[in-house]
């Protein structure tokens, strides 16, 4: 862990200013990811701008939806009565992730900004394009069973680790940011980016911009949702594949489908063609299988016994099951680890 400068900001403007005042600044809120990265010497911030005192921790009604303050903790959001009744998909996704202790510390903004998951990114003894652009991707051809099958590039195959963001992608949340050039809104699908040839950049935030809120649109999906997370143990593990599904049904037909996947790409993965394919179709296993086939048709895997080829079939089956759960109105329980 390097030596760094520390500034505590009282307002958003102060935070933005303090950030710009030093090389290699990082905002810090819960610190549940950043501190780990600093201990591993992956992040070497010149300055930490502590934003925990900013008045951004409220959850408020807005335009028929909810505005989640960037500093509302993961636990606060997951257990908020309005979130639980109107956006249970989000509550369930949050509770499927991390541990109670981490959720108490981790913030909404920080959840969006956690770095991608990859053994090699976290190990400074190995080359990594994300840490040192141009040094090469060690994961390709290496131990890659946890890595991405969608949207990868020759430069990076890391995955976004968040559960919450998968639900936010399905709900089409909007990220509110503030920065040196003022405020702007970023649709969730455009917030995280694919690695391409610059995997060092995880999001479309501009330098010095800070997430101030996440807006949940008014649209709700009633009981027809699920967050299904498949992992190497039944709690406290990142998703190998997760599925956030939400359906609007018209009788036994699908009116609208939202489908987002976690653990399979550098960002929460949506495939709008697959969602459109479901429109007007009967809410049956056959329809769901067709949608799942469409999603996994784009998969590209890493070979070998330590590769991730299994994720394609796992994702296909998880999508079908997730859509079945959503259609039946029997979302995956967070406490009962049996899968419905």
């Amino acid at each position: 862990m390097n030596r760094f400068d520390y500034v505590r900001a009282g307002t958003v403007a102060e935070a933005v200013q303090a950030f710009a005042g030093a090389e290699g600044s990082r905002f810090i809120a819960g610190g549940t990811n950043l501190i780990d990265l600093m201990k591993y010497d992956v992040e070497r911030p010149g300055r930490l701008v502590d934003i925990t005192r900013l008045p951004l921790d409220r959850i408020e009604e807005r335009d028929g939806g909810l505005r989640l303050g960037a500093l509302a903790t993961n636990a606060q959001v997951a257990y908020d009565a309005r979130v639980q009744s109107r956006y249970p998909l989000l509550a369930n996704a949050i509770l499927a992730g991390a541990s109670a202790q981490l959720r108490n510390a981790a913030s909404t903004g920080g959840n969006l900004l956690q770095r991608t998951r990859c053994y090699y990114f976290y190990d400074t003894a190995t080359p990594c394009n994300k840490r040192e652009p141009g040094s090469g991707c060690s994961a390709i051809g290496g131990v890659a069973r946890i890595h991405a099958i969608f949207g990868t590039s020759a430069h990076c195959i890391a995955t976004h680790p968040s559960d919450m963001c998968v639900a936010l992608a399905a709900l089409e949340a909007v990220v509110q940011v503030s920065g040196p050039e003022g405020e702007r809104s970023i649709p969730f699908a455009e917030f995280h980016r694919l690695p391409g040839d610059s995997p060092q950049t995880d999001t479309t935030l501009k330098p010095g911009e800070i997430v101030v809120a996440v807006d949940l649109p008014a649209r709700e999906f009633g009981p027809h949702f699920t967050y299904l997370k498949l992992r190497d143990r039944l709690s406290y593990a990142f998703a190998l594949v997760s599925v956030a599904a939400a359906l609007e049904l018209d009788g036994d037909r699908v009116k609208t489908a939202r489908l987002a996947l976690g653990g399979v790409a550098h960002k929460p993965w949506r495939n709008r063609e697959a969602e459109e394919l479901l429109q007007g179709k009967p809410a049956t296993r056959e329809s769901f299988q067709a949608a799942a086939d469409r999603v996994v048709a784009e998969a590209k895997t890493q070979g070998g016994p330590q590769g991730n080829a299994f994720k394609v079939e796992l994702a296909r089956r998880a999508i079908v099951r997730g859509l079945e759960q959503a259609a039946a109105g029997t979302p995956q329980s967070i406490s009962d680890k049996r899968i419905q």
Binding site: Y119, D123, G142, V143, R233, L234, S235, Y236, A237, Q306
Partner: peptide, 29 residues
């Protein structure tokens, strides 16, 4: 069901060297 230190044989290094990625059973298991 869970424990496995995964060796990258190209470089001779265990890669999942932390308790987030090396899985031991948790209460839910």
């Amino acid at each position: 069901l869970e424990e496995e230190s995964m060796m990258d044989t190209r470089i001779g290094r265990f890669m999942n060297h932390n308790l987030g990625e090396y899985h031991v059973p948790v209460n839910a298991d």
